[in-house]
Computed example of a mutant assay.
Amino acid sequence: MAWEDAFKIIAAMITSIGAGGALVLALSTWLGKLWPQRILENEKHQLASELEKTKRELDIVKETTLRFQNDKLNTYRAAIEVIARILAALDAHESGRLPPTEAGARFDEFNEQRIRVYGYLAMIAPQDVMDAQDKLIDNLLLVANGNAKYEWEKVRENALALLNAVRIDVGIDKSPISYNGAL
């Protein structure tokens, strides 16, 4: 065998291996692109599904939180309305504009409503709000029962303490409000 024949055989082997290798390389490259693409699409689909589920859960949490905050504000409004009504009655009685019989009827109404308000507040309010409400209501009960003198400054101080505790609880503002009027 001559060198020329040996080179032809070697060249034929390299060519056949090269063609098969090129075919294997081409298929490997194609599969190497196809599989990651399919895996990526599958992962994208799973992530999109999980993201959608998380969004729905967040919407439920948001809706529940907003509903709770709205209920809390409505309860605080109801409490303030009850307190405002008895304060107006006490002011009217102290100034002689409200006869004792009508003042008694307003006190009876207040007494019923304060118990209801206490129950509502107990369901939603933190202890700071409850303490401020207790202090104000105790003062009003003492005055209404004739066991304490009606002092507007003290009532206003207790009412502002309650309002400031409510403001902190609902997140309106952490800084306290104060009365800066002349009376």
Rank of each mutant, 00 (worst) to 15 (best):
M1A: 09
W3P: 06
W3I: 10
D5A: 09
F7H: 09
I9G: 04
A11P: 05
I14Q: 08
I14A: 12
I14T: 12
T15L: 06
I17D: 13
I17H: 08
I17W: 09
I17N: 13
A22Q: 07
A22E: 06
L23Y: 12
L25H: 13
L25P: 08
A26P: 00
S28N: 05
S28P: 03
T29I: 12
L31A: 15
G32N: 08
G32E: 08
Q37F: 15
E43T: 12
E43H: 11
H45Q: 13
H45E: 11
L47H: 12
A48Q: 10
E50P: 03
E50H: 10
E52I: 03
T54R: 11
R56Y: 13
K62L: 15
K62T: 15
T64I: 15
T64E: 03
T65D: 05
R67D: 13
D71V: 08
K72E: 09
T75N: 06
T75K: 04
A78R: 03
I80A: 01
E81D: 10
R85H: 06
L90P: 04
D91M: 11
D91K: 15
D91E: 08
E94L: 01
P100R: 01
A103H: 10
F107D: 00
F107G: 02
E109Q: 14
F110M: 04
F110V: 00
Q113Y: 12
R114S: 13
R114Q: 14
R116Q: 12
V117Q: 03
Y120I: 02
M123Y: 10
I124N: 04
Q127L: 05
Q127I: 07
D128M: 02
V129A: 00
A132D: 01
A132I: 03
D134T: 05
K135A: 02
I137F: 02
D138K: 05
D138N: 06
N139Y: 12
N139R: 05
L142F: 12
V143I: 15
A144G: 07
A144S: 14
G146C: 04
N147R: 10
A148P: 00
K149Y: 09
W152I: 09
N158S: 03
N158I: 01
L160I: 03
A161D: 01
A161R: 00
L162E: 02
L162T: 00
R167I: 00
I168S: 05
D169F: 08
G171I: 05
G171F: 07
D173N: 15
K174D: 05
S175P: 00
P176L: 04
P176F: 02
S178A: 12
S178F: 06
S178K: 11
S178L: 09
G181V: 13
G181W: 07
A182T: 14
A182C: 10
L183E: 14
